[in-house]
Structure formats: C-alpha cells, structure tokens
Design a binder for these strands. Structure first.
Lengths: 238, 238
DNA sequence: GATTATTTGTCCGTATGTATA
DNA sequence: ATATACATACGGACAAATAAT
C-alpha cells in the first residue's frame, strides 16, 4: 500500500477489496481471508484492515460474522418490473429455480384499500392468499394477494397445486394479465415476515403493492409483496 | 365495544381507529388521545388499547413516541418514476415545496461501477455531488451524483446556487435529459444518512440507483439516492 | 437548570375462553 | 373426559422519554 499518498491506508485497502470482488477474485458468498491474513498481505495492522472491512460492510458489500469469518454478500437477484411481471419468468430467465407455496388463505370482506384497488365495494367478498416464493430454495418474497371471490372460486386449490398465480389464474380463464401500477416502499420486517423469509430481527423488507388487470382492464388482483431487502434489486426500465 | 361477538376486542378497536383515520376524524400527523383516554372511552383496559395501537403501528398507520403520544403517520409522498423524473416537478405537482442544498462535492477518479454506468473509462475524472433534498422543509432524500468532469466544469457552483440538478445542467446546455434505468433496493440507514435525514437509528432507506442520459443517449449522470423509507412511496406506472 | 406532570414502554401477575392432542 | 397450549383481557407497578412549569 502507498503510505503517505494522501489517501488513508484503509481507504486504499477498501478500494482494492472492492475491485477484487468486482473482478471476481472473491465470488459472491465466498469467504475472505481472515483479518490477520489480510493484514499480513497488505503489511498493515489488523485494525487497518478492520476499518476497510467495516466500510464495505456498511455498504452491504461484505458481511462479517463473529466467529465465522468475513463473506462477500450474495448478489441480489434483479427483479424487473413492467407490464408483464411474472415471478416465475423473472427467476427462470436468470437461470435460477423458482418456487412458491401457500402459507394461508381465507375469504373475507374487502377493506377500504383493497376495495379501492380492485374497483369493488368495501365489504365485497375477496379471497386472500398468503404465499411465500423462493429462488433456489431461498425464500425471496412473502406476498398477500386479494382476488374478487365470485370470479375465482377454486383459486386457493389451484395455487396450492401449481405454486404459481399465473397458472392458477389460467384455470379460471385468464389467458393473460398485465400490471397497472406498482408502489414501492420499505420498512423493517414484521415478526411474521422475518420468520418466513429467514431474516434476522431488524432486517429490511422492500414492499411492493401492485394491481393486475385482465385483458379488458378489470382489476383481478391486488398484491402486497414483501421482498427480503438484501436479496433483491428491483429494476425499472423507462 | 361488543364483548363476545366472536371478534377480539383489540381487533374491533383497531378497526374503529382505522375507520376514524380514513374518515378524517384524526388527520395525518394528528395526535391521538392518550392510551388512558382511549381506554376510558372504549371501556377497556389500557393494554387492550395498546394491542390495537400496536397492530396499526405495525402497518405504519400509527406511530407511537414514548413521552409524546401516538400520532397518525404522515402520508408518504408519491414519487413517480419514469422517463422524465424531476424531483422539483414531482414535489410541486403535489402542492408541496421542494428544496435542495449542497452537502459536499469533490472531483475524483471514477470507480468501476460509476465508470460503467457513465460509459467512461475507470479512473476518468468525475464530479461527485452530495446533495440533500427536502419537501416542505423536511428532508426526504440524500443523494450522491456523479457527472463526467470535463463536460460540466461549473456544475458544483451552479447547483449550490439553484439547488436543482435540472437547472444546473441547463446552464451546461442540457435542455432535456431522460432516465434510462432505475434500480431500487432497501437497507438500514448508515450513520451519515440517518443524521442528514433526521432518522432514528435503525431506520430504513430506499436506495435508488439511476442513470440519466442526454438527448443523444450519452450518460450524463449516475445517482444513488437514499430516501427516508417512511416518507416516500415510489410509484411505477406500466 | 431543576421539578413535575404526562405519556408510552416494559415488566410482573391473574383469570378465562378456545382449540387441540 | 382430560390435559395442554395459546390467545385474550385485565390489573398494577415502574422505567424512560418528553413537555410544561
């Protein structure tokens, strides 16, 4: 390292590590050499290496686990949002394995927000589907979906069987549907979401609220999906 | 409250409060009566009211501050993302007052990510602008922007004077620019962002990484903006 | 600056109804 | 029928943060 170059040693080390990670020297989820090992290589004190690692951990590029080591954060999956947003397609396109399972379901009266989004009267019967979707076996998103109950009588069974909203809707004559609007916010994961998504307490979820409409423009689904914040990056092309 | 109606008391109270908020009995940012007061009105124990408030707080409808009271959450500002995303326009359109100020700036060599996004060689000179944008005086987003240095020599001064990226770019002959791609993720706010955005420790930020291009399609800006998670809702129309 | 009142947060507990094995 | 677990509802005491005096 260049001592006295006007750039702090720990910054130089951080940038070197960042470059190595970007270049693939340390792949995603790989373990970095121990702090002592790195200190030896860079010929600096271990604390200088720690400062560099701390800076990269703050950016969520590294993840330091006491007693285990320091790891390169796993690359978040790209989740493009557009007119035709389909979980299975998005995941498959990235050569990963999609999966979905039913957590719970119920039939209930639509509250104000759901009614507005589905364009029905408050109190109308709606089917609520609680689902968990995974990528390569790792849970990615926990979603709550509402559908007009009269139009989709066998929806729960169809989803439980196929693990796919798209396929379940196909069985009810919905050959195609498109996304009208997506609203994105973020918050700390609730206890239930944290458990289903295997997140530590205090972890962050990206919340996506979306309305899907059929070919005639009628709303058929309102969904509130909670994505594990560090496992996804939502992409909007404009 | 209807005891023994098959619905737990705290749920009934929560739904009553939710309805009152929706109806405008308690406007945004208004203070609710104290827990003791509400317990008296509903003729239940204070803990039962707390349970109801807790449920609504989990949904970010209420916000309870120890020693101050319980408040209706302020409605998050809608932040539509599209080809022509302009902070000032978005805020003004919602009849609110936009503001921007320069936090810091520097000229530096582009790192790998910035170079790739701006379509230049790593190490090329770039201007880095650290800005803070507010709505009605409340800080909303803390952004870091990079611009090719040779093309925008007086950019820092222009932004410091106008408080607007759009206006600063106009002075450099950019009559119009459009957004190419936006990548959205979420994480816990770092110490610096938390301070500038007046966020409590552990609060959540929405991170938006975006590339803007000029009329000829050349990248002119790469920006990483951190939005206070509970003060904004990003809207994607498709 | 110190004091006090107000308000929410966190404990301790008791009792009861409901669902389940 | 019995036992167990769980959610609900209530009561009280105190801590911690805030606002007003």
């Amino acid at each position: 390292m260049d001592r006295g170059a006007g750039v702090a040693l720990w910054r130089q080390i951080a940038e070197r590590l960042r470059a190595d990670i970007a270049a693939g020297v340390y792949p995603h989820n790989a373990r970095l050499p121990s702090e002592a090992e790195l200190a030896g290589r860079f010929k600096v004190n271990r604390h200088t290496v720690r400062r560099a690692i701390g800076a990269l951990a703050e950016e969520n590029i590294l993840r330091a686990d006491r007693g285990r080591g320091t790891f390169v954060a796993s690359r978040p999956i790209d989740y493009p949002i557009g007119r035709r947003t389909r979980f299975s397609e998005i995941v498959s396109r990235q050569k990963r394995q999609p999966g979905g399972r039913l957590v719970a379901s119920s039939e209930e009266g639509a509250d104000i927000l759901v009614a507005e989004k589905l364009g029905i009267a408050p109190g109308s019967r709606v089917i609520r589907l609680e689902t968990l979707s995974a990528v390569d076996g790792v849970p990615l998103t926990r979603a709550t979906s509402w559908f007009p109950a009269e139009r989709f009588p066998g929806l729960v069974a169809a989803y439980a069987e196929t693990g796919s909203i798209t396929k379940a809707l196909e069985r009810h004559g919905i050959a195609d549907y498109t996304r009208l609007e997506t609203r994105i916010s973020a918050r700390v994961a609730g206890a239930d979401d944290a458990e289903h998504l295997s997140l530590p307490p205090g972890a962050v979820v990206l919340v996506s609220e979306a309305v899907n409409i059929d070919a005639e423009g009628n709303p058929i689904q309102f969904a509130r999906a909670r994505f594990a914040g560090d496992r996804v990056q939502i992409v909007v092309e404009s």
